[in-house]
Amino acid sequence: MKKTLAIILTIAFFAVISITVLADSYPSKPIDYVVPFDPGGESDLTARLQQKYLEEILGVNVLIKNKPGGGGALGWAELVKEKPTGYSMTGCNLPHTIVQPLMRENTGYETEDVNPVFYFQSTPNILVVPKNSPFNSLEDIINFAKENPGAMTLGGSGSYSANHLGVLELEQVTGATITYIPFTGSGAAIPALLGNHVGGLMTYTTMGVNYKDDIKILAVASEERVPSLPDVPTFIELGYDIVEGAYRGVAVAPGTSAEQIKILEDALRKINQNPEFVQKMNEMGFKLEDYGQQASVELVAKRKEYYTQLLGELGLLK
């Protein structure tokens, strides 16, 4: 028993040493893929789908680690303090990394410190009601909300999330008063919808695809219709200029070398073009995006300006 252990230990020791010695070409050792949310959510599912392809392309193991807490803030607070080794990347989400530092006093990170590599997918907001709901269109909901201020309830995932902001935008654009009820995740809001405890949900396209038999999807908040829900009109088509949703990508520690970022960016872009991956993602209701490093930085800056203005106008900024 002891002998075998000794052998295993020796091998392990040498394995570790040899890896560190040979570390000249990138990547040459396993890469951590940190998901700052619980397993089972949208970010986690995407990471687990990407894992296999990432390993094929990069030629090293990719280990998914969940580091949840504070709506992702714990993971990002740690990311910005990490040493830029290039061997750890963290899933990053919009609007989270913009709105959290805006709304919280001590988030532990700044929006600009989250160093994006690639934003690969998004889930536009959709407005849904239960199958047996008296509302059949966006117009019905807005009229009801105008006649009965506050009585129209819409659930969604979290406070100051894309869902919450989507409801705020809808209120701002239409002048109606809607009560937003946050739940602990997009999945946790579904029972409240199916049980008619909320009037409707502002949720993500993925949920619309998953529960399409039990719900009516009234509108989607993307610029154009999404492939997974071809029959659902956009808010823009219906006359309301609302585009809102969550974007997901990965980021690395500030100061990571440009070459390493390029390698990761190319790998992720290649996965986004893999037909098998594309089909799986579409089936699950994700919309694929292609924001490389430079485009991501611009996207974040643009959205930050927009959210600062929106929250300022609503008087919610501190």
Partner: peptide
């Protein structure tokens, strides 16, 4: 302790950002 489930306030972290997760 941590982020309020409704309202999103950061509560009782005593100045430590790590307590956001409760």
């Amino acid at each position: 302790i941590g982020i309020a489930p409704i309202g999103g306030d950061v509560r009782f972290t005593f100045g430590l950002s790590s307590f956001q997760g409760g």
